[in-house]
């Protein structure tokens, strides 16, 4: 069985996740018909007119942070689908979720316009060519994505950006629940999901060595 160590070499992601989970045990337009994914225009469509003009420096930084994570996820899923090694529900998951992440990339790029960061180059180190490695990595990525968006929610200044961020946050949580169910893991391991800070997430991502540049 694939070990998480391969994708999470220093246990960085797991540690922050587990710590976060156990620490507090007390707390435009949507739908894709026929498999077509929601394009970036729909994300923009969720926002009030003038949303782009209203974006503060802080919000731009948050959006670019989100975009970086979405670039990573979208590339991971696209590569997995292209490698064509997945079957059954895992294959469906990769295709559907990949479409969502691609839509998130497109939407965030459109909102950011000239201010959008470019995509990093990635090396997923074999995790897109092996079903077990893919499944384990996807679970970590989705859980991390949930915690990442959650960590920023309280910091977003623009309400229109917040609407979009909360929308994507919930979808990432659905992705996380789905892949956990596929993996035979508890889809909702805690009554309250804890946030991770931008620093924590970026440090964890750095340790995966998925980002080459």
């Amino acid at each position: 069985m694939f070990e998480l160590e391969t994708v999470d070499a220093d246990g960085a992601i797991r540690e922050t996740q587990e710590e976060a989970i156990t620490r507090n045990d007390a707390v435009r337009r949507a739908v894709a018909f026929g498999g077509a994914f929601l394009g970036g225009g729909a994300l923009l469509g969720m926002l009030a007119p003038g949303a782009k003009a209203a974006t503060t420096k802080g919000d731009i930084a948050i959006l670019n942070y989100a975009l970086t994570l979405e670039y990573l996820e979208a590339a991971f899923y696209a590569e997995a689908v292209a490698n064509n090694k997945l079957t059954g529900e895992l294959a469906v998951f990769a295709k559907v979720v990949g479409e969502h992440e691609a839509a998130h990339v497109a939407g965030l790029k459109e909102v950011l316009g000239r201010k959008a960061v470019k995509s990093p180059k990635f090396d997923f180190q074999g995790t897109t060519a092996d079903p077990a490695k893919f499944a384990a990595t996807a679970e970590v990525l989705e859980d991390t994505g949930v915690a990442a968006y959650k960590g920023q929610a309280g910091l977003v200044k623009s309400n229109t950006i917040l609407v979009a961020a909360l929308s994507i946050h919930a979808v990432e949580a659905r992705h996380a629940g789905w892949i956990r169910a596929i993996n035979g893991h508890n889809p909702a391991p805690a009554a309250f999901d804890e946030p991770l800070t931008m620093k924590q997430v970026l440090a964890a991502v750095k340790k995966t060595k998925f980002i080459k540049s």
């Binding site: 949507a30 469906v92 969502h100 979009a164």
Partner: peptide
């Protein structure tokens, strides 16, 4: 789908 769409409506 457990995640029917890229955006979650409110």
């Amino acid at each position: 789908y457990p995640a029917p769409s890229a955006l979650q409506p409110a």
